[in-house]
Structure formats: structure tokens, C-alpha cells
Nucleic acid binder design. Sequence first.
DNA 1: TAGTCGTGGTA
DNA 2: TTACCAAGACT
Length: 353
Amino acid sequence: MSDVTQPKAADLLEWYDRHARTLPWRVAPSDRQKGVWPDPYRVWMSEIMLQQTTVAAVKSYFEAFTRRWPSVGDLAAAKDEDVMAAWAGLGYYARARNLLKCARAVTEDYGGHFPDDHASLLTLPGVGRYTAAAVSAIAFDHPEVVVDGNVERVMARLFDEHQPLPKSKPVLTEYAASLTPDERPGCYAQAVMDLGATICTPKNPACGLCPWRPACRAFANGTTTDLPRKEPKKRKPTRVGTAYLARRVDGAWLLERRPDKGLLGGMLGWPGTEWTETPPTEAEPISAEWKTVQAEARHTFTHFHLRLTVKTALVPMDRAPERGDFIALPDFRPSDLPTVMRKAFDLAQSGSS
DNA sequence: TAGTCGTGGTA
DNA sequence: TTACCAAGACT
């Protein structure tokens, strides 16, 4: 057991002032110290998008959303289907449904101004403990204890905590609380997360560049890459299903809005069978001469693999579907579909040319 | 509490 | 190919 120094928030803030990443939703630390503050709407939007999602994936969506809906009032007035289409491809679609609910709650219950305290933020749809703390700290500079996956990893290593997640979350939160400063808590919150994202990474951490290396017990003990420990994950089962892609002779596509709850809730998709581990019963949405595309669409969700059979048909104008609605070609953009549905579309295009 | 809920990058 | 992982929330 080697000697370590005491970790100080000031050491991390000094590092952050020199190395803070430039991000579309971030106000640079130098500007914050000049009194420039971020728009809480943009901070909230970024935090929702960043839930379980990488910065690289979020950037273009954040730009598109804030350009199209510059204020929370603009977003509150948006049509549900426009927001869902704009979110397509980003995943975890409950976030998009809650994004709208939250924008409307802030507009109607708070006069279009986000509340600044943790308790009020926590009541908003889609805002949990982490996001409430992050918005309160980053947008309003309140000294909240912000604990995300990055902070958990940094704390586990800094204090050489070997109890596996999620059981260790309370003690890791205590460590995080013990370090959270009263000065510049907003910058500090972003600094710990930046440290986790760029230095104290899950694999191959750059300990040589870490401002907290002298204080890091895992580094001193050589256990860095073993931490944080996690409970083993269950293997994903494979499910199978069929998607039916019907094209009318005028070019319109037969699509169906999925129910709000459940997988891909609220999103547009192809009518199809259930997705089950044993082959499901056929569910043709319209009477037609169906042809099976040779290859299948493969996609992996959070808790299962999917092998999707794609069937296509060309149907005449006068035939009514049993499920779904025909969407005219000018109104159909494959980019409005969740990725698995877009994969099925791409396969049909290449497989039936 | 443990399961549900996406996607793309990476080793 | 496979598994892991990313600024979690909800039930």
C-alpha cells in the first residue's frame, strides 16, 4: 500500500480550466468566470440526450433540435410526430416522449423557466437523480452531488473501491459528495465527467495525464483497470420476427405508429409479427403476394438480439390495409425510422432491385 | 429490486 | 463475431 495525497477539487478545476472540451451546450470555464451562463433549456436538452449516449452521437441531434426549437416554448408547441421523427436513430425513445412532456410542463407550470432546485427538477418527466443534479449544478451553479457512470468509475478508482456496482453506488456517492466544492460546483461537475470521459476511461486510462494521479489509490495499488467492478451481465437471447414492407403502385409505403409504451414506443415502423424466441405466427397487414428477401436484418437491442425476416409486396391502389396507413412517397423519409426499421428498409431496397 | 429500454463505436 | 460500453429513467 503506497502513500497517496488527498484529492482536491481545486486540482481538478485547474486541470479543467486548461483542458475543458468545447461542446455545443457548454459555456467555457473562462466565460463562466466572466459571468456568462448557459441557457438551462440547452443544458437540460443535452443532459437528456447524453443519457447512456456518447457525445459523438449526441452532437448533431442537439444542433438539429436547438436550431428547430430554440426555446422550451417552441418545443412545447411542437407536434409529437415531428419530435419523434427528429429523435429517430438516437435510441431510448421514452426520452423523446418525456422530452415533450417535460417541455410542456415547464411551459405550463413554470412559465417557460426551468426550476433551479433539485427537488423541483426531479418532478419533471424524464428527469431522475442524475439529471436533476446536473442541471442544477451546470445551469445554476448549485453545489449538487452529480453522479453518473463517469463519476462512479473515477471514485471507484480514486478510493480503490472493490465492491461491485450497483451495490457500491451509495458509497461511491458518499465519496463524490465529500469532494464536491462550494466554489464553482458547475465547472467541477463537468470536470469530473470530462476526466472520466477523456482520462479515466474504462479501458487504457491515461493515468500519466491525470491531475488526481497522486491521490489515486487504485493507481498506487495497481488495480486501476480492474475497477469499477460490476456484477456479471446476463447473455442476450435471440428473438425472431417478420417485417412487412408493402409498397403501393403510386410509391406510398405502408407504415404503422407503434404504441407509446414498450419497445420503440411512439415510433413509426413497418407492420409485423411479434418478436419472440420461437417463430411467431404470420401477421400480414394487407392481402398481397408477399416475397421474402433473401438476407435477414440483424439488430441488437439492450436485452436481446433480433433476426428479422423482411417480406415485400407491391399492392394495387384499391386495396385497403388491415393494419397501418399508406404514407405518400414525398412524406416518407427513412431517417424518420428507428434504426432497426431503417435496416429492414435498406435490405428491401437492395434485395428486391 | 431487477427488468426494460437503442444505438454505434471499439477491442 | 461477440461483448462491452456511453453525462440513466422508469416501473
